[in-house]
Design a protein around this nucleic acid. Structure first.
Length: 253
DNA sequence: AAAGCTTCGTGGGATAACTC
DNA sequence: GAGTTATCCCACGAAGCTTT
C-alpha cells in the first residue's frame, strides 16, 4: 500500500512540469497557523515527530544532528498530502537559500522547486509563515520593497546555519537526488528511449547502469535481512560502516 | 473482557479566489 | 508577481460500538 502511494505521488509529480504548480495561486495561512511553525511541534509531533517525514526519516532514525536517517517512503504515512519536510528543516533550507541570495518568498518557493525538479515545491502556506517566524527569531531581516518583502540572512541566522551545515548539505543533496529521479521518471513516462553519455551514463540522471544496479542490489540484500539476528545485524552494520567510510573518503580504501 | 471495527473530531497542508 | 483569506482534503488518534 505504501509503495502504491509512493508511486502515485512520484508519478503525479513526475508528470508535472518542472516549474511546479504555483502558477496562479498564492495562499497564505493565518498568523495563528504560523504559530504552529514557530513552535514546530504540537500537531507536528504526530506527523514529523512520531512518523517522521520523507526527508528526515523516522524519528528514531534521525538521531544526532537531525540527520537523514531515512529517505523516500520511510515515513509510514501516505505520500499524497503528507509533509515532506519538517518545519525545522524547511526553515534551515530557507536560511541556506537566503545566504546565497536575499529573496522574496515567491522566489524561495521557486528555488526549492527548481532544486528538486518540481518534486518539492513547498506551498506558500508553508513558506510565508516560516519566513515570518525566521524574522521573529531574528534569523532573517526584511527589506520592504513596496508590497514585496525581501528577506536577508541575519547574523543569528548565519550562526544557526553554521551549527547545521552538515544537515543542510544533506538536505540539498537529497533534493538534487530527487531531481534526478524526477528526470528519470519523466523520461520513462514520455516513452523516450534512454540516451547514454560517453561513459555509458544515463544522460537524464548521470548514473551508470552498474551504479544503479549496485544500489538496487544493496537495497534488496538489506530487505532480505530484515529479520536478521542480532549477530547478523552487527555483521551487516560493520560492513556498511566500512563501505560508508570508503565512499565518503576514497583515500582510505 | 478482549479484540476488532467504525465513526468522528482535530489539525496541517494544499489550493481557489481574491486584492494590491 | 507577492501576499491574504477561506475552504477543502486528508491522515491520524480517540472514543464508541459490535462481535467473539
Amino acid at each position: 500500500m505504501r509503495d502504491a502511494q509512493f508511486l502515485t505521488a512520484f508519478v503525479r509529480r513526475a508528470r508535472q512540469k518542472p516549474e511546479g504548480r504555483h502558477d496562479h495561486s498564492h495562499p497564505h495561512h493565518s498568523h495563528a497557523h504560523h504559530r504552529h511553525h514557530g513552535e514546530g511541534h504540537g500537531h507536528h509531533q504526530r506527523h514529523a515527530g512520531a512518523g517522521g517525514d520523507w526527508f528526515s526519516g523516522p524519528a528514531d532514525e534521525r538521531g544526532e544532528g537531525g540527520g537523514f536517517g531515512g529517505g523516500f517512503g520511510d515515513d509510514g504515512r501516505g505520500w499524497t498530502r503528507s509533509r515532506k519536510v519538517s518545519a525545522d528543516d524547511l526553515q534551515l533550507m530557507l536560511l541556506g537559500l537566503l545566504e546565497k541570495n536575499p529573496s522574496h518568498g515567491y522566489e524561495l518557493i521557486k528555488a526549492l522547486g527548481a532544486l528538486s525538479n518540481g518534486f518539492y515545491t513547498p506551498s506558500p502556506g508553508m513558506v510565508y509563515p516560516a519566513l515570518t517566524y525566521l524574522e521573529e527569531l531574528g534569523y532573517a531581516t526584511v527589506e520592504q520593497e513596496g508590497a514585496k518583502k525581501r528577506y536577508h540572512l541575519a547574523e543569528p541566522g548565519r550562526a544557526h546555519l553554521d551549527g547545521n551545515r552538515e544537515r543542510l548539505a544533506l538536505m540539498f543533496n537529497k533534493l538534487k537526488h530527487v531531481a534526478r529521479k524526477m528526470d528519470w521518471m519523466r523520461q520513462a513516462w514520455s516513452g523516450q528511449p534512454r540516451t547514454v553519455g560517453p561513459e555509458g551514463e544515463d544522460t537524464a540522471t548521470g548514473w551508470l547502469p552498474e551504479f544503479v544496479a549496485a544500489r538496487q542490489a544493496l537495497k534488496r540484500a538489506l530487505l532480505d535481512r530484515t529479520d536478521a539476528s542480532p549477530q547478523e545485524q552487527r555483521r551487516i552494520a560493520a560492513i556498511l560502516a566500512r563501505a560508508t567510510a570508503e565512499i565518503t573518503d576514497p583515500s582510505c580504501s
